[in-house]
Nucleic acid binder design. Structure first.
Lengths: 119, 119
DNA sequence: TCACTTTCTTGACATATGTCGAAGAGGTAG
DNA sequence: CTACCTCTTCGACATATGTCAAGAAAGTGA
C-alpha cells in the first residue's frame, strides 16, 4: 500500500483507453483506482460524504456526523481517516471541533474514469 | 446481504439529491451503492473489466482472462462471479467456453450516481 | 493549573475477502 | 461410454476490514 497515491487526474480512463494503444489497464493504475473505489465502497462512508455534500460549504464536523450513523466515535474517526487517505475529504481543526470538507474534484475524477467511451 | 440488488437506475443520486428533500442518503440506498462499488473496488476485477471493454462485443471468455492477471482459474471464477452478482457483467455459455460480457449501462449508472450536481 | 469537551489512537475481536488445491459439473468428441 | 476440456464449487487459509472500549491528545475556559 503506497504512502501517497498518484493524482486522480493521472489515472488512465477505465474505458476510454486511447483507441490505438495497448488494451488493458496497467496493474499500477488498477491498484490506484481500486484504492479510491474501496474508500467509497462502504455504506457508512457514503452516508457521511453525502451529508457533507448537502451542507453549506460541503463540510461537517465530527460531532455532527456521529449521530447520523449510529456508531461509536472511534469508528466514525476511522471512516473519516479512510476518506481523507483517499483524498476524498480534507480536514481542518477549528477550536475544539474538527471539520471535514469534501473534495468534489476527487469524486468527479473517479466518476470520469468510470465513464465509458460509448457515452 | 440482499439476494437481488435494486436496479441501478433506482438509486438516488449521491450528490444531486432532490434539493428540497431531506438531505442524506438512506441506509438502504447507501448499502446498494456500496455493494456495487465494492464489486468494482478490486484491481483484478478492474483489469478483467477493462480487458472485456477493449474486446469486440465487450466480452471475453474465462480462458482468455486467466492469463491476463496471473491467478488461478478458481480465483478468476470467483472475481467474475462477483462482477456478475453486481450486475456489471452477464455470462453466457457457448460450447465449452463461458463468455462474460460487460453491461456498460451498469457502470454508467454508478458513474452518474457519483456525479456532483455542481458539475 | 485544573476541569471539561471534542477528537484521535491503540488494542482486541469478529467478520469479510482474496487466494489456492482438489474435486465436481457441464459440454465435446473419439 | 470414455476420455478430455473448460469452468465452477468446496474447503481451507492468511490477510484486510469494520467495530468497540479504554485511554491519550488537543484545545477551551475557570
Amino acid at each position: 500500500m503506497p504512502k501517497t497515491l498518484p493524482m486522480l487526474q493521472d489515472l488512465s480512463p477505465i474505458c476510454c483507453a486511447p483507441l490505438g494503444s495497448s488494451s488493458g489497464l496497467s496493474p499500477g493504475d488498477a491498484l490506484a483506482l481500486a484504492l479510491r473505489l474501496k474508500a467509497l465502497a462502504d455504506p457508512v462512508r457514503l452516508q457521511l460524504l453525502v451529508h457533507m455534500l448537502n451542507q453549506p460549504g460541503q463540510e461537517a464536523c465530527t460531532c455532527e456526523l456521529a449521530p447520523l450513523v449510529e456508531l461509536s466515535e472511534p469508528t466514525i474517526s476511522h471512516h473519516l481517516k479512510k476518506l481523507e487517505g483517499a483524498g476524498l475529504v480534507v480536514k481542518e481543526r477549528r477550536g475544539m471541533s474538527v471539520y471535514y470538507q469534501v473534495v468534489p474534484e476527487a469524486i468527479h475524477a473517479i466518476a470520469q474514469t468510470l465513464h465509458l467511451k460509448c457515452c
